[in-house]
């Protein structure tokens, strides 16, 4: 008679071997050591995680701040260039105005107006130094410069026009 020995082993559950008496206590000690080690590892993991998060937070903060400062300094530089350009033009126009304007009262009046505008400009500049990121301040600054330039241009145009008219009348009267 033959038998398939695989069937024989399907029911193989004989526990012939006996564990040493102290095995439970021994395992309990091992378990305690193992658990405290695992907990420690978990704690370390948490600390590392926290440290990594903080590091990331500071790094992002630092770079954002750097970026902001860079942006701000770029803006200040741009404003300074615009200011220089305007002031140069204003100065040039002022001298042109002086050469063509013969009315002292007019020159005085315009000088006063320009000085007032310049005073305003200095005040706004102080504000800009405190709050470099405010677009309204920047706009007011440029508007101020523009007003001064436009003012000089307008008056010159007016004078030229007046002169032309005078010439015309002079010519016609002759």
């Amino acid at each position: 008679m033959k038998q398939d020995i695989r069937d024989l082993f399907r029911k193989y559950e004989v526990f012939n071997n006996k564990l040493p008496d102290t095995h439970k206590q021994e395992f309990y000690d091992k378990l305690k050591g193992f658990n405290s080690k695992t907990n420690k590892q978990l704690n370390y993991k948490n600390i590392y995680r926290l440290a990594a998060t903080l590091l990331l937070f500071f790094a992002v903060g630092y770079f954002m701040l750097q970026g902001n400062l860079k942006n701000q300094s770029e803006l200040v530089e741009q404003i300074e260039t615009i200011e220089q350009e305007y002031l140069l033009n204003i100065n040039k126009e002022w001298h042109n105005f002086l050469t063509i304007a013969k009315d002292e009262k007019l020159v005085k009046r315009y000088k006063k107006r320009l000085e007032d505008l310049n005073k305003d400009y200095q005040e706004i500049s102080e504000q800009f130094k405190v709050d470099t990121n405010n677009i309204l301040i920047v706009e007011t600054l440029i508007e101020n410069l523009n007003t001064r330039l436009q003012l000089l241009k307008d008056i010159q145009e007016h004078i030229t026009l007046l002169n032309q008219e005078n010439e015309y009348y002079e010519n016609t009267t002759i």
Binding site: E13, F15, N17, F27, Y28, N35, T38
Partner: peptide
Amino acid sequence: KGNEKAQMQLYNLYCDAMFN
């Protein structure tokens, strides 16, 4: 959850079979 008592219970249930 890491309960030591439960771990010991499971050990007691299976140690003989696993040892063999």
